[in-house]
C-alpha cells in the first residue's frame, strides 16, 4: 500500500466492461524520509468507492490487496489499484 494525495479524476467512456461504473482517481504517491513528507513523482490511477475528494490524503492498495477492497476491486473488477482508506489524521 502507499500513502497518496488525490490530484484529480480520469474520465473514460470506452473502457473494459469489467471497469464499468468505477470512478477513477489520479493519485500522487507521498513518501516520507529524513527530509519530511513529499510527493515521490509517481502517479497512479486508482478505483475509488469511498468518494474521496481532491486533496484528500488516502491509502492506495495494489494487486491482490486492492482486490480485497471488495467494492472497488473484487475479483470481477478489472483494477489493480484501489483507494482503501481516506486518512483523517495520523
Amino acid at each position: 500500500m502507499i500513502r497518496g494525495v488525490v490530484l484529480g479524476q480520469v474520465w473514460a467512456t470506452k473502457r473494459n466492461p469489467r471497469l464499468a461504473g468505477k470512478r477513477l482517481l489520479l493519485v500522487a504517491e507521498v513518501v516520507e524520509d529524513a527530509a519530511g513528507r513529499r510527493r515521490s513523482g509517481r502517479v497512479v490511477v486508482a478505483a475509488d468507492d469511498l468518494d474521496a475528494r481532491v486533496g484528500d490524503a488516502v491509502v492506495v492498495a495494489f494487486g491482490s490487496g486492492a482486490r480485497n477492497a471488495e467494492e472497488a476491486c473484487s475479483r470481477d473488477v478489472l483494477s489493480d489499484a484501489a483507494i482503501v482508506q481516506i486518512i483523517d489524521s495520523e
Binding site: G8, V10, W11, A12, R15, L24, L78, S79
Partner: peptide, 8 residues
C-alpha cells in the same frame, strides 16, 4: 483497461 476522454 480504458481509453481516456478527459483528465481533471
Amino acid at each position: 483497461a480504458a481509453i481516456v476522454d478527459r483528465v481533471e
